[in-house]
Amino acid sequence: MENERSFLEYLRDFSETSSPLDFVLIYDNLGKFFEGALVTLQLTFLALFIGGLIAIPLAIARAYRKPGLNQVIWGYTYAFRGTPLLVQTYLLYFGLGQFEAVRTSFLWDPILSDPWWCVLIAFTLNTAAYTTEFLRGAIETTPKGEIEAAKACGMSPLTRMRLVELPSAFRRALPAYSNEVIFTLHGSVIASTVTLQDLLGVGRWLNGRYYLAYEGFVTAMLFYMAIVFLISLGFKYAERRYLGHLQPREVDPSERAPIAA
């Protein structure tokens, strides 16, 4: 206790005399930032999870050029990749709310009236569109040899997809997917524009409450950086684990075959 008080006193002193930022306010509201981080992480990873599940069948349909379906899915991914996430969220949140028919429908009360659901739906559709396209690319570039080997083993098309093509595609899509995860996290700041108290929302709340310019943003920024750092670390591990066979191998010089003289 004694320690904490002297730390706070030091913080107050530092904030008042030499720092352009008010660290006491940040310290006092750290709990709120952690709550905000929870909202951010919840939205980001739920959207990624559901979006990922949607993307797998869509990507297969696209890769195999299923007539009709292929064009419809292309239209969907084109629309969602071709427009800003902010516009999609606004359309869902403010746009749909304009219509009496939507406001009286069964979807309004539990789902569309709630900013959390609106944002989750927008994020999910957005990330599903991107994931569909690069997963399709990964499926299309499956080495012919792998497919021929699977056929030679007598696998049915479904088993081949399950045991050979998809696992192989997931591995190839891993580096691209790490970008998608980080972009989705960055995009999640849009939640704060429709009243949600995500990380940026808490930062803006702090700035608004105490008429500050930087404190809220700087704190939110540090939280985002920490989260991105952890995500990158996770992907680094996953890439080493699942793409290890593609990495340049270090060879012990003593094991090198002697150069033919």
């Binding site: 403010f94 709310g97 304009q98 406001r103 309004w108 009236s113 524009t193 009243t195 929302g201 803006r204 709340w205 608004g208």
Partner: peptide, 15 residues
């Protein structure tokens, strides 16, 4: 909390 007063009214009307 909203960014503009117009957004506040929009959400009041939307319920």
């Amino acid at each position: 909390l909203y960014n503009t007063q117009e957004d506040v009214f929009a959400d009041l009307v939307a319920g």
